[in-house]
Nucleic acid binder design. Structure first.
Lengths: 267, 267
DNA sequence: AAACTGGTTTCATTATTTGAAACTTAGTTT
DNA sequence: AAACTAAGTTTCAAATAATGAAACCAGTTT
């Protein structure tokens, strides 16, 4: 019988790590145990191991576990090497200046949208508090445009995992409704969020596709129904397209500076 | 014979993850193999597992691995729940406004200094590019003040792992020199970086200690020898102390808002 | 003091990891 | 095109590590 987790011991340990992170607050061992599939000593050892490895942090005063600092270090590397953020940075700066609205850069993680960067028109950026956040794929602009351009196996797989929780009266509430919408998006090359996630919040979203057609990520410009409407947002499509093209191009040419002997450098 | 890694299979897998992250750029399997202690099939399986788990990302076009996006999501949770950043935010904002110099907030990760937040006097913040960076503990202000207040077993362990690479003519170049310095710091309650890491760069650093005496992190105010000197920086000690106390207090009272039914929320 | 709760350890059983060797591509060279 | 090479992948028996029922050890509560 195939295990849910797969990937042996390492997969199980990472499952525990996710479980802790999902709590959103420091948790006690017993709380984890209560909702864990693992027997007590097994879970105990995983938690011990992860704590040793600084993947979890243990607060002896409160006797709680939370995600460890080692993750912050690793994520810095991930953000820098794997995400579109470093290549896209200057392009979304420019985009946000032109459109004067909030701009998001996102990628897919499992079946969710992972926000990688954000420009809050005008405001200085508060990065870490935003990047790393996840959102639903089926009811966000960036989510839908990315789904629309996945190959159909991958798309099916992701669609299957959507919750179709109804946030507003415009939320797409079924796989069929979503598939229809994805067809439209494929036709147009871009998509909207029509107050599907939060009332009064609308956006235009544009996929970032590689030359070979792989989905690299997505961009969106967000606004409110009090300031504009879908037609108003649609006017941004050319500049969004242009920005997406530039990011695509840079992402493909990007080659990492070879700092072979990297002694730790000044922050 | 005790393994270096310890922590069984999970520890080994995480060692591989670190190895990939340390490269600072996408790497091929063969590059990893060349510098790995693991035999080919073992390393191969670890890389496979980690990729399945999205802890690594595989680029099929270039046939390279890099740290995966799952880390970004996990780190968001870590930054939010485990680090001092969210509690310290308003205090370091205030501090940076008062002193008008660059302010750092750091914690220890393994034997290194991990920068958690930063205020770049005046400039708008560019967070992600900075938070997550690591630096040496033996030649930075924040590193030394944290070491000084660790209990002696932990300190010994960390000191043992320092490279004592000589960056400038003022860099402490031995465990003995460092230990002497740590004694002074323990006496005073704060410490300096006397151009030990980079010529012309100096700082005052203050540990953030819990009521029970545990090291929670450290704060520093950084400047240049062209703008001020150690005596000038020492004038900031009272306000640094005050800020550290406030962060300590808030960290201890901090209780996480209980969003039990956390549907994904807007970014 | 007995019962309970939350956390930790033991140890024989079981399942997983391990790695030498063999194999498969894909790319070069003769 | 055959022979060589390098990089990546699979096999399989032996070695090792993970597993979890049960027992144990604090503190607390009844």
């Amino acid at each position: 019988m195939a295990r849910v987790t797969g990937d042996g011991t390492v997969g199980k340990a990472l499952e525990v790590l996710d479980q802790v992170a999902a709590f959103g607050r420091p948790v006690r061992f017993s709380e984890l145990l209560a909702q864990s599939a693992f027997p007590k000593p097994t879970l105990y050892r995983f938690v011990q191991t992860l704590t040793n490895q600084q993947m979890l942090a243990y607060d002896p005063d409160r006797q709680t576990y939370s995600p460890g600092v080692r993750l912050v270090r690793l994520a810095h590397a991930a953000w820098d090497q794997t995400t579109l953020a470093p290549v896209a940075r200057r392009h979304i700066d420019a985009l946000s200046k032109i459109v004067g609205e909030t701009v998001h850069l996102a990628q897919l993680d499992h079946a969710q949208v992972l926000y990688i960067d954000k420009r809050n028109a005008g405001q200085p950026v508060e990065m870490y508090s935003q990047a790393g956040k996840v959102g639903p794929a089926y009811c966000t602009g960036v989510g839908k445009v990315m789904l629309a351009f996945l190959d159909s196996d991958a798309a099916d797989n992701v669609i299957e995992q959507q919750s179709f929780h109804v946030f507003t009266e415009h939320t797409l509430d079924s796989a069929d409704a979503l598939r229809a919408e994805l067809n439209d998006i494929r036709e147009n090359g871009y998509g909207f969020d029509r107050e599907e996630h939060e009332p009064g919040i609308i956006c235009v979203a544009m996929p970032i596709l590689s030359d070979t057609g792989r989905v690299l990520g997505a961009l969106s410009v967000t606004s409110t129904t009090s300031r504009t409407n879908l037609a108003g947002l649609e006017a941004f499509v050319p500049v969004l397209q242009d920005t997406a093209d530039k990011i695509k191009r840079d992402a493909q040419n990007w080659s990492f500076p070879d700092h072979t002997s990297k002694e730790t450098t000044r922050i």
